[in-house]
Structure formats: structure tokens, C-alpha cells
């Protein structure tokens, strides 16, 4: 009897494994072809001194990696990425929750806000880059005009190494906050209407409902939002490349822009690959580590 139970459990597990394998297969195949293979290739290339195009790369072993460890520019870029990451999480996610909560509480009337708020997400980086360079221009830009209106002077935000990075972070937040709004709106659908109605009957007001009921139920959504924002910020490229190209004085240089310039503009594919590899290791480590902390108890199971 007991033996039968074990075989049955085993059988069931085998069945589970089988179903899991079938369901996972397409994703795993695509990832191996399009992502694992390029990663392996990157690590391979990083062992060479190679301009990216010649047919005889020179093997230098760990040379590029040693250089990477001592490359101030890379670590400055990494630090910039960390700043982008911290501020993005602190700005985008709370704003996203606020917007989603407003939409959730206001109901149908707020649809128009949801649509208007979402527009930044839809615009292409080309247009955003163009309009913000003009809006941020020291002379005649919108920010400077506002400052002058209040009796201040012209402000050079993008050209000043002290403010450039924060300005870019602002623009990135402008573009990506809507995503976290939509994400939280979707998260709210998990907080079922019944719970809300029950809490209203119990006499809870909206603030209490939000703090004690909605927020805890949104927690899984927020955790994954934080991870997404983290990874997204650590490998960010687009707007920075369009708006500042990493300047002035490397103030906005990110790992991705640095890697891109090395690999494709400076004919240093070998070292560029080492930077890309370093990026990959750092980002994976940080995100997996954070995930483990956030899901601590569950992973331990």
C-alpha cells in the first residue's frame, strides 16, 4: 500500500516534469538561439584583442578583463547606472502607484487620464530626444523661461556635468512612469472587487483601504516592478545616447553607451565585449540577489 503510494507520487511527478518540459520547450529553444548563444559568443570574443572586423583576432586571455577591473571609466559608468537605478525606482514606481490608484478609485471618469498619461510611453526616442533638447536649451528653453519668469537666470541642465545625469533621469522617468501605471492597474485587478466592497461595508475609508488592504495585495506586483525597473535602468541606452552621447565629461556615460562606443565606433570589439560581459554579470547578480531577498521565505521552501 505504502509502496503503491510512492510509485503513484513518482508517476505524478514524472507526468508533471513531462508537461513542464513541453510547456517550457519553445521559450528555452528561442532563448538558447537568440540570447545564450550571443552571451557565450560575447565571453569568447572578450578573450581577444580584436577590432571587430579583421579575420585574425589576437588571443590575449584575460587581458581585457584585467583592464576592465582597473578601468575608471567603466566603474564611473556603473556608478551612473546605479544612480539611474535608485532614482528610477524611487520616482517611477511611487508615481505609477499613485496614478493607478487614482484611476482605480475614480473609475470610468478617469479613463481620459489613463490615456493621456500613457502617451509618453508611445513616443519614439527620436522625437523625445529632439523635443527635450529644445525644451532644455539654456537660452530660450522651457525650463530657462520658467526660471526667468520667476526672476532667475538661464539654467544649463544638460551641459553641466553636475546636473546632466539627473536631467536625463527625469526624462527617462517621464517616459517610463506610464508603464508602471499600467502595470499597477493590472495588479489592482488581482485585488478583487469583493474585497473592496467588503472593506467599505466594514466602514473603512479609502485611505485605510489603500494602506491596509490594497497595498499588501499589490506587493507581488511592486516587487516585480522593482526588479524590472532595476534591470531596465542598469542596461539603459536609448535616450542617453540620443540626448548626451555620454557627455559632458562622462557625466552621463552608462555601461551600455560605453560598450556601444567601444565596440562599434572605436574598433575595439574585444574590450567592448568584456564590458558587455561585465555588464551582464553585474546586472544578473544584482537582480537575482535582489529577487532572492524580496522573495526570501518563498525561495527557501
Amino acid at each position: 500500500m505504502k509502496k503503491d503510494g510512492i510509485t503513484l507520487a513518482r508517476k505524478r511527478q514524472r507526468n508533471t516534469n513531462c508537461v513542464a518540459a513541453i510547456f517550457l520547450a519553445p521559450v528555452i529553444i528561442l532563448l538558447i538561439v537568440y540570447i545564450f548563444y550571443p552571451i557565450v559568443e560575447t565571453f569568447r570574443v572578450s578573450a581577444f584583442d580584436w577590432n571587430g572586423i579583421s579575420s585574425n583576432p589576437k588571443f590575449i586571455g584575460l587581458g581585457n578583463w584585467v583592464k576592465l577591473l582597473h578601468d575608471d571609466k567603466f566603474w564611473t559608468a556603473f556608478l551612473n547606472n546605479v544612480k539611474v537605478m535608485v532614482l528610477s525606482i524611487l520616482i517611477q514606481i511611487p508615481l505609477g502607484i499613485a496614478m493607478a490608484t487614482f484611476v482605480e478609485f475614480a473609475g470610468k471618469k478617469a479613463t481620459i487620464f489613463k490615456i493621456l498619461w500613457f502617451i509618453p510611453m508611445l513616443m519614439s526616442s527620436v522625437a523625445i530626444g529632439f523635443l527635450f533638447t529644445y525644451a532644455l536649451a539654456t537660452n530660450g528653453g522651457i525650463i530657462s523661461s520658467i526660471s526667468q519668469f520667476f526672476g532667475g537666470t538661464n539654467i544649463d541642465l544638460l551641459g553641466n556635468p553636475d546636473t546632466a545625469l539627473y536631467t536625463v533621469i527625469g526624462v527617462i522617468a517621464w517616459q517610463f512612469t506610464p508603464f508602471y501605471m499600467v502595470y499597477c492597474v493590472a495588479g489592482y485587478t488581482n485585488v478583487s472587487k469583493d474585497v473592496y466592497e467588503a472593506s467599505v461595508i466594514d466602514g473603512a475609508n479609502k485611505r485605510q483601504y489603500f494602506v491596509h488592504i490594497a497595498l499588501p495585495l499589490l506587493k507581488p506586483t511592486l516587487k516585480s516592478a522593482a526588479i524590472l525597473s532595476m534591470v531596465g535602468s542598469l542596461k539603459y541606452f536609448d535616450l542617453v545616447y540620443v540626448m548626451t552621447g555620454g557627455g559632458p565629461s562622462n557625466a552621463t556615460e552608462l555601461m551600455a553607451t560605453y560598450m556601444y562606443k567601444l565596440s562599434f565606433a572605436q574598433f575595439n570589439m574585444g574590450y567592448g565585449s568584456a564590458v558587455a560581459g561585465g555588464m551582464f554579470i553585474l546586472i544578473s547578480f544584482i537582480s537575482l540577489f535582489t529577487m532572492r531577498i524580496l522573495n526570501g521565505r518563498k525561495e527557501g521552501r
Partner: peptide, 16 residues
């Protein structure tokens, strides 16, 4: 799969 999120897009260009 989560680690795959960290891949910088540009390094996939040549292999792809």
C-alpha cells in the same frame, strides 16, 4: 530566464 533580462541588446547584433 531572469538573467536573460540583463543582456545588452547590442551584443546580440552580430550573432543574430
Amino acid at each position: 530566464i531572469v538573467a536573460c533580462m540583463s543582456i545588452p541588446v547590442h551584443i546580440t547584433l552580430i550573432p543574430i
